[in-house]
Simulated assay, not measured.
Amino acid sequence: MQLAEFLPSRPTRLWHLAKQMGVDYAVGPLPWEEKERKPWDFMSLLHMKMRFEDFGFKLAVIESAPPTNKIKLGLPGRDEEIESMQQLIESMGAAGIPVLCYNFMAQFNWFRTSTTTATRGGALVSSYDHSLMQNAPLTEAGTVSEERLWENLHYYLERIVPAAEKAKVRLALHPDDPPVSPIRGVSRILRSAEALQRAIDLVPSEYSGITLCQGTLATAGEHIPSVIRRFAAQNKLFFVHFRDVRGTAEKFAETFHDDGKTDMYEAMKTYVEVGYQGLCRPDHVPTMEGEDNANPGYETLGRLFGVGYIKGLMEAACAERHPHGSVANAIHAKG
């Protein structure tokens, strides 16, 4: 497993901290600050990739995309959005960036009813309470059915999977967060491991797989080690978001990595068992003392805790799997 962090497209304090923690892999956004070119243009991505490499990171995942809401809703203009996605995939392939993490959440991305829920020691986390959404007005999209979304996802995959095959870029589909439907009239279809399986089976390809977001799937009630084994056995496990929660899809709160309902050591041992060699990053960390919570889920101090915790789990799981070799050699063998 390759430990990574989600980093801005240009050097920041977080870049330095990540290197100091021993992180060698980067998950990047699109370089939206580009003025002369589209962020998904080849040269935009190449320049960003070289910034990472010159700093000592390998950029291996893009977790961002051009606008895709017309694609998801099946609106006029979706073919132009699909063309932009095809250009992104082509550019990634040419630049040697192997994985694209994408989602099919229409109208809004990951969604919470609170970003100021107190957890251990007064740290702040995001949470979701579906009862608070019962009287919420519809969005401008109105009522969006699950059938409509499945049809639109199929249309989309028929057009981007061939582009991914040609560019040799792996498409890592993220589940819907939260895994509950509908929200403000907009259905959510990727709410379980079974739904993710159905999605990647729509247009079968070795380049179409999943992002295993542990927090989302744990919220949905999935047994994380079983999900790891299921998709790893098909070579469909392309990227991992390592985080945890307490609660159910209807009402949950995010947690510190060591304070949720998932047996995180069992999960890590399972990744080692199946020989997963892709990227894993901490995700949705608590906001800790001294931070202003301006970027809920992505402040700095919780990331430091998350990276350290994951590194410890990796070392322990690899050492258990390879008891007669050094921990360093065991990790190297898997990463």
Rank of each mutant, 00 (worst) to 15 (best):
I160E: 01
Q197P: 00
A267L: 09
E34F: 00
S9D: 15
A106Y: 03
R303D: 00
V186C: 10
A26N: 02
N69I: 05
Y271H: 14
D176E: 06
A267P: 07
M85T: 00
D292L: 13
L217N: 10
L17D: 12
M314C: 07
D244T: 15
G74M: 11
P67V: 03
E53I: 06
T216V: 14
R191N: 15
W150C: 04
G306R: 01
L304C: 07
Y128M: 06
T300C: 04
M21T: 00
V99S: 06
G308C: 06
E81K: 03
Y156Q: 06
Q2R: 15
I71G: 04
G22A: 03
T68S: 13
Y156F: 15
S64T: 02
P11E: 13
I183K: 08
T143V: 15
Y128S: 06
A136R: 11
P137W: 10
A328H: 06
I331W: 11
P286C: 02
I183E: 07
G96V: 11
L279A: 14
A232N: 11
D258I: 02
V99K: 08
V274T: 10
K261T: 13
P137A: 09
G77C: 07
F108L: 08
R191K: 14
D177R: 08
E5V: 04
E165V: 05
E158Y: 00
T287N: 06
